[in-house]
Design a protein around this nucleic acid. Structure first.
Length: 533
RNA sequence: GGGCUCGUAGCUCAGUCAGGCAGAGCGUCUGGCUUUUAACCAGACGGCCUAGGGUUCAAAUCCCUACGAGCUCGCCA
């Protein structure tokens, strides 16, 4: 049996396989920005990024590109669109107005937040837009070949996919000069020398368009044409393209037989499944966008989730408690010098240039955030007092945002609390001993300098030890011989939580108290000990 | 119906390509940390590797069949 140390990470397996064929590699991914970019696409880019880096790490000449299919037509008026978009159905996404008016066009509206998310994830591919590629003539030769070899391509589609193309099928879809739609036209002729295509459109018009920027290849032909035009050698894609007779199969045949190009190495990946809880119930049809996911998960943890799992396996993602477990696991691994070779590799691939990393654990931040009531200046002060690195304020802010969103959207009740502005009414139920303890604690704190979490911890427990100041004070107030005093620290903790939070339990006490202002504690404990409803 | 992928501890999953003692993390339980919070440490519990057959000295691993889960198959990401 092999030990863990001998197991190779999947990205390195891909790199090994691919490097046998040659040293120079172009890893490509793509997606149509027709709506909010979905979670599955993130797996695609992270998978591609891992492959790209693995090839580079093994000495290959590696490049990474991302193609936005901005020239695809709008399929329908999606639920999130205004009715007025009905007139744009069928037009290329790059030629449709932006839904919010802030972007250059429809495609950019959805592309921009996605590219921003890529930055957060430390993924930096060279970005292409399909409409620009077509308009620049990158596809020109492929378009000519496809038009000339139309029947051959049709035969391949028939043979590989088992479906025969329609009578009037054509690999090229002209954009109608009149109505601007790309999926309503039929090719009626073409001129290779003039580089033009004639068409008729269902809107009633006929016309001629240039091969450059006048239309696009149909998807099954577009894909292999792109491989050749850009030199793609590695490409991850979802299961939807991987089935027999699917677009990868036809793409392979078309690449070889029509474009004389060796198809890219495929990396087929599975979808990310959502946990069953909360607002993310898939039965309600709620789709999780990448930006939604990045709202709650630190980017490196998200990478970790994807990279540690082989592409062909489902990923189950649950943003409630399991997210905390995932983050913990990542942070633990991060701190573990003795992690296995494979784990170290996973970790290495989970980190990336440009990714923000702070040494503040997610769990701690959930407490800090709540202690500070969400005030960022206060958070920074607490972070500094706790001895964390405060240099990377931007990273801390990102983590703060993640935690804030997580607390609001997914956190289980037991991690939530809030420091009460007034003495909580629950304080009325405290025992005499608890009140005495709080009063004594208040006095002692008022005489001390700033204390560390451990100092607080020790101080509270000192009530149990013979001869300590706290014990004497309590015994005196209770009118008992200090030697006879029986104390249960647990009751003291309850008193503290009740006085500050109005509940019986809370975060690790010593550390928690050190996060709060000492003067506030002095006053609060004093007031709580004297509180009468 | 055709195809692809998956099925291993209560949970999440390694291990399957290349057959060689059944693994990790989390959770649970027990104990410890002169002091139980949700921190830390140690230990324990926990498995017919979905089922059945085959190949083999040897199968979670390879082959066949069944069952279960997911995805995909109207030229459309």
């Amino acid at each position: 049996m092999k030990t863990m140390a001998e197991i190779t990470h999947w990205a390195d397996v891909v790199a090994d396989e691919v490097l046998i064929k040659g040293k120079k590699h172009l890893v490509a991914t793509g997606i149509t920005p027709s709506g909010h970019i979905h979670i599955g696409n993130m797996r695609e880019v992270v998978t591609a990024d891992a492959a790209y880096r693995a090839v580079a790490d093994k000495g290959g000449d590696s490049e990474f590109i991302y193609i936005a299919d901005t020239y695809d037509p709008l399929r329908k008026v999606y639920p999130f669109l205004d009715e007025s978009y009905a007139e744009h159905v069928g037009k290329p996404l790059s030629e449709i107005p932006c839904p919010c008016g802030q972007h250059k066009n429809y495609a950019e509206h959805f592309l921009e937040p996605f590219l921003e998310a890529l930055e957060h994830l430390g993924i930096h591919p060279k970005v292409y837009r399909a409409d620009e590629l077509y308009k620049e003539g990158v596809y020109k030769d492929a378009i000519k070949q496809a038009l000339v070899k139309k029947d051959e391509i049709g035969a391949i589609l028939q043979k590989v996919s088992g479906k025969s193309p329609a009578e009037d099928w054509n690999p090229f879809n002209p954009i109608c000069n009149e109505c601007g739609k790309v999926n309503t036209t039929l090719v009626t002729g073409f001129d290779v020398d003039a580089e033009t295509v004639d068409y008729s459109c269902s809107c009633g018009s006929t016309g001629t368009v240039p091969m450059i920027g006048g239309g696009k290849l149909t998807w099954r032909v577009d894909w292999p044409a792109r491989w050749k035009a850009l030199g793609v050698t590695v490409e991850p894609f979802g299961k939807d393209h991987a089935s027999r007779g699917g677009s990868y199969d036809t793409g392979v045949a078309i690449a070889k037989e029509i474009f004389d190009y060796e198809p890219p190495h495929p990396i087929v990946y599975e979808w990310i499944m959502l946990g069953k809880k909360g607002a993310m119930s898939s039965s309600t049809g709620v789709v999780v966008s990448i930006s939604d996911m990045l709202k709650v998960v630190p980017p490196e943890v998200l990478r970790y989730l994807i990279i540690r799992t082989k592409p062909e396996k489902h990923i189950k993602f649950d943003p409630a408690q399991p997210l905390l477990t995932l983050v913990d696991e990542f942070e633990r691994l991060h701190a573990n010098e003795d992690a296995s070779v494979k784990d170290k590799r996973v970790l290495e691939l989970s980190q990336a240039a440009g990714i923000c990393h702070t040494d503040i654990p997610f769990k701690h931040m959930t407490t800090i955030y709540q202690v500070a009531g969400g005030d960022f200046d206060k958070i920074m002060r607490i972070v500094e007092r706790a001895g964390y690195d405060t240099e990377k304020e931007k990273c801390i802010r990102e983590l703060t945002d993640n935690v804030a969103n997580w607390l609001e959207m997914y956190a289980p009740p037991f991690v939530k609390f809030s420091v009460q502005d007034e003495v909580p009414v629950q304080t009325a139920s405290l025992s005499d001993m608890q009140n005495v303890f709080l009063a004594a604690l208040s006095d002692m704190l008022s005489q001390k300098d700033e204390m560390s979490g451990e100092d607080y911890h020790n101080l509270i427990y000192s009530a149990k030890e013979e001869g300590t100041e706290l014990r004497k004070t309590i015994a005196c107030a209770m009118d008992v011989d200090p030697a006879e005093l029986e104390v249960n620290p647990k009751e003291f903790f309850k008193a503290i939580y009740t006085a500050v939070l109005g509940q019986q339990s809370g975060p690790k006490a010593g550390w928690f108290l050190s996060s709060l202002e000492k003067d506030f504690l002095v006053q609060r404990f004093k007031a709580a000990s004297e509180y009468r409803p």
